[in-house]
Simulated assay, not measured.
Amino acid sequence: MDDIVIVQPVDTDAELDRLARQYRAAGGVGVQLLNALGGKAEGLIDRLPVAVRTRLTDATEQALALAMRAAQTSRTAVPDQKEWVNTAVTTAMGAAGGFGGAPTALVELPVTTAMLLRSIQGVAAEHGFDPAAENVQFDCIRVFAAAGPLAQDDGADLGFVSLRLTLTGGAMQKLIATVAPRFAAVLGQKLAAQTVPVLGAVAGATANYVFTSYYQQIAHVHFGLRRLATDGNLSEAEVLARFTAHTKSLAS
C-alpha cells in the first residue's frame, strides 16, 4: 500500500504577514550606516561627474543585459552559494571598486550587478522555481525594480510585484529598459558613496554588503509571494492585494 502524503494547508495570512515584515525590514541598520558614509541619499548622485550621470541609465541597461547572460551561463559551471558567501564576495568587490574612486567603481559595477542577479536566481531556485525558465528570468530582473536600499521607501511601493509584460519577442529587452532607469538611480547613489574621499573602499564594501543583503531579501519576498499564490491556489492579483494590505497595516 502506498504511503499517504499529507499536505499541510498553507496559513496564507501568517505567511503574508511574515513576508510583509521581511519586506519592510529589508533595509535594516546597514542602510543607516551607508547613509552615514555617503550623506543623504537624495544628494549623492550630484557628486558624480556629469559624464557619468548623463549615461548612467544606458550603462545600467547594458549592465543588466550582460549580467543576465553572465549569471545564467555561470549556473552550468558554479553551483548556487549560500547567501552569506554571495554577500562576502560582493563586499570584497565593493571595497576593491571603491579603493580607486569613480574609475574603478565603474569597472566593478557590472560585475557586482551580475553577482546580485546570480544571488537572486539562487533565491528563485530555493523557492522551487527554475532560473532557466523565461518567466523566472523576467522575475529576477523585476526584483531590481524594487526601491533600492538608498531610496526613500516607506514600504508602499510594490510595483516590482505587479509589473507586467507579455512574453513576446524582445520582451526581455523591454523589461530591462523599463527597470534600468529605476535601478540606475540606485546604482548612481552607490557609485557616489564609493567616491567619498579616503572612505571610498569602506563605502564600497558597505554599499555592496547592504545592496546584496537588500536584494536577496526582496527576492525572498518576490518569490515567496509567487510560491504562496501557487500553494494557496490564489491569483497573483489577490496575493498582491492582500500583501499590500498587510504591508500598510505594519506602517500604521
Rank of each mutant, 00 (worst) to 15 (best):
E236I: 07
S162G: 11
G43W: 10
Q189E: 15
A133F: 00
A145S: 10
I218G: 10
R24F: 00
L19W: 04
D153H: 03
L240N: 15
V31W: 02
Q217L: 04
F129I: 02
A184N: 10
A146C: 12
I6K: 11
F129V: 04
A124M: 05
D46H: 06
I45R: 14
T73W: 05
P197R: 06
K190D: 15
C140L: 03
V50G: 09
L37Q: 06
T12H: 00
V29M: 08
A192Y: 06
A26L: 01
D139Y: 03
L158G: 14
H220Q: 13
P131Y: 02
R118G: 12
P49M: 08
G100S: 13
E108W: 03
R24E: 06
V179R: 02
N208P: 08
A25N: 12
A51R: 11
G169R: 02
T247M: 04
T247A: 15
Q217I: 04
Q22G: 14
C140E: 07
G128T: 01
P79A: 10
E236N: 08
V221R: 04
L66G: 15
T90R: 04
H222K: 14
T104E: 10
A92P: 05
A156M: 04
F223N: 01
D157P: 09
A147P: 01
N233S: 14
T212S: 04
L66T: 08
T168L: 13
L175N: 14
T54F: 13
F129E: 04
L37K: 00
A156S: 14
A251H: 08
V179F: 13
M172E: 11
L117G: 04
G43N: 14
T212H: 00
R47T: 08
R227E: 09
E238I: 08
A241E: 12
F138V: 00
S74N: 07
S213M: 04
G27L: 07
L19A: 10
N135K: 13
L175R: 05
A201I: 03
Q121I: 03
H220Y: 01
A65R: 15
T104Q: 05
R142T: 02
L66K: 11
V50D: 11
P110S: 09
M172Y: 04
Q216S: 07
A207H: 04
H127G: 06
A96H: 11
G204E: 05
V85P: 02
A177I: 00
A36E: 03
G204W: 15
G39P: 07
G94D: 12
A114I: 01
S213F: 07
A88V: 06
A171T: 02
A193G: 15
K248H: 06
